[in-house]
Simulated scan of single mutants.
Amino acid sequence: MTTRQVSVWTGLLMAACLASTPAFSADLKLSGDQEAPPVKTSASGTGSINVATDGAVTGSVTTTGMTGTAAHIHHAAAGKSGPVVLPLTKSGDNTWSVPAGSKLTPEQLKAYQAGELYVNVHSAANKDGEVRAQIKP
Rank of each mutant, 00 (worst) to 15 (best):
Pro137Val: 01
Gly92Tyr: 07
Trp9His: 14
Pro99Thr: 08
Ser42Cys: 15
Thr67Glu: 07
Lys80Ser: 09
Gly11Ser: 05
Gly92Lys: 14
Thr64Cys: 08
Arg4Lys: 06
Lys127Thr: 13
Pro83Cys: 11
Val121Trp: 12
Ser91Gly: 11
Gly47Pro: 10
Ser123Thr: 15
Ser7Glu: 03
Ile49Ser: 00
Ser81Val: 03
Ala43Ser: 15
Thr62Ala: 11
Pro37Val: 01
Ile49Ala: 00
Gly79Val: 09
Ile73Asp: 08
Val131Cys: 02
Ala78Arg: 12
Thr63Ala: 14
Thr67Leu: 05
Val51Ile: 11
Ala78Ile: 06
Val8Ala: 01
Leu28Lys: 02
Thr10Gln: 02
Thr3Ala: 11
Glu35Ala: 00
Ala43Lys: 02
Pro83Ala: 12
Gln108Ser: 08
Thr3Val: 10
Ala133Phe: 00
Arg132Phe: 10
Pro106Phe: 06
Arg132Ser: 09
Glu107Leu: 14
Val131Gln: 04
Lys80Ala: 10
Tyr118Gln: 05
Ala15Thr: 13
Leu28Trp: 03
Thr105Arg: 06
Leu109Phe: 03
Asp27Met: 04
Ala133Arg: 01
Ala52Val: 04
Pro106Arg: 06
Leu109Gln: 13
Thr95Val: 05
Val84Met: 06
Thr69Asp: 06
Glu107Ala: 12
Ser123Arg: 15
Thr2Glu: 10
Pro106Lys: 13
Gly45Ile: 06
Val119Lys: 02
Ile73Met: 02
Tyr112Gln: 12
Pro37Lys: 00
Lys29Asn: 05
Val121Pro: 09
Ala43Cys: 09
His122Tyr: 05
Ser20Ile: 08
Trp9Gln: 10
Ala56Leu: 08
Pro87Gly: 12
Ala124Ser: 11
Ser20Pro: 13
Ile135Phe: 14
Thr58Glu: 13
Ser81Asn: 08
